[in-house]
Computed example of a mutant assay.
Amino acid sequence: MNNKSLKVLAAAALLCAAQFAAAQNVPVAPQPSSPAKKELIAKLMVLQQPGVEQLSRVLLQQPLGPLMQQAGQALQQVPADKREATAKAMEAEIKKFVDDNAPMMRERALKLAPSTVGTLLEERFSEDELRQLVAWLESPVSKKFGQINGELQKALTDKLLADAGPILQPRFQTLQQNLAKQLGLPPAPNASSTPAPSAKPATPPKK
């Protein structure tokens, strides 16, 4: 099982955990609105714009992981002398997909954020709480935390993959074999015939 596949599984597990936690939340009574609250929320939308843009990129690239995994498996059936050229052509298609659709996703995410995130903030937070939230997001400590947030996530991801990878790899291979058996397909190559994953996992193309 390569690092890319493990990242997809890890992201899916984290998403499920977040959805489960959200389902357990007790509904909060809506907070009264005011012009001052709306002004604070507008400011929050500006402060949160990088996060909204990042979310649009994640959602765009999310289905590419399984797609690239399937393409990688199919690539093994291509004649060896054409494999490298085919791989480069597929990478170019994926990059073009991201480049063509990233601006649309970003624009729509920014357009929808005020009526979704902004509305929830207005309903769930008081004016004083919103003021505190703005102060925190504008503070040097918050900005410093935001700068290293990606590094923190990468550190945990790399450690998790290194720790859980050897355990999941044979289990994933068993799952592949069981699924192939159910579909009446030839068994997947075993670990001895499967190329070792690259030390540096490939990352989805960015705009």
Rank of each mutant, 00 (worst) to 15 (best):
N2L: 02
K4I: 11
S5I: 10
S5A: 15
S5C: 08
L6F: 03
K7I: 08
A10M: 15
A12H: 04
A12T: 12
L15F: 13
A18Y: 12
Q19T: 03
F20D: 07
A21Q: 14
A21F: 09
A21W: 13
A22K: 07
A23D: 09
N25C: 06
V26R: 13
V26G: 02
A29K: 08
P30Y: 12
Q31N: 00
P32E: 08
P32Q: 06
P32D: 09
P32C: 09
P32R: 12
S33H: 09
S33L: 04
S34Y: 03
K38I: 04
E39D: 03
L40E: 04
I41H: 02
A42Q: 14
K43Q: 10
M45L: 15
V46D: 14
Q48R: 14
P50I: 03
Q54I: 14
R57D: 12
V58K: 13
L60K: 03
L60S: 08
P63Q: 14
L64H: 01
G65D: 12
G65T: 03
G65V: 05
P66V: 09
Q69A: 12
A71P: 00
A71E: 12
Q73I: 12
A74Q: 15
L75K: 05
Q76R: 11
Q76I: 04
Q76D: 11
Q77L: 11
V78A: 05
V78Y: 05
P79G: 10
R83P: 07
E84S: 11
A85M: 02
A85C: 05
T86K: 09
A87Q: 14
K88G: 02
K88A: 13
A89S: 10
E91C: 01
A92M: 04
E93I: 10
E93Y: 02
F97R: 01
D99N: 13
M104D: 08
M105W: 00
M105V: 04
E107Q: 13
A109L: 00
L110V: 07
L112F: 03
P114N: 07
T116D: 02
T116E: 01
V117A: 11
T119H: 07
T119A: 15
L120C: 10
L121I: 09
L121D: 01
E122C: 06
E123T: 10
F125I: 04
E127M: 06
E127Q: 13
L130W: 06
R131L: 08
L133R: 06
L133S: 02
A135L: 09
L137C: 10
L137P: 07
L137F: 14
V141T: 14
S142R: 05
K143N: 00
K144E: 10
K144L: 11
G146M: 12
N149A: 14
G150R: 07
G150F: 01
G150W: 00
Q153E: 14
T157H: 06
K159V: 13
K159Q: 15
L160I: 06
L160N: 00
L161H: 01
L161S: 03
D163C: 08
D163W: 07
I167R: 12
L168C: 11
F172V: 15
F172W: 14
L175C: 14
Q176K: 10
N178M: 06
N178I: 05
A180H: 13
L183T: 02
G184N: 04
G184L: 05
P189W: 00
S192W: 01
S193H: 10
S193A: 08
T194I: 06
A196S: 11
A196M: 09
A196K: 09
A196F: 02
A196P: 01
K200E: 15
K200I: 15
P204W: 03
K207N: 12
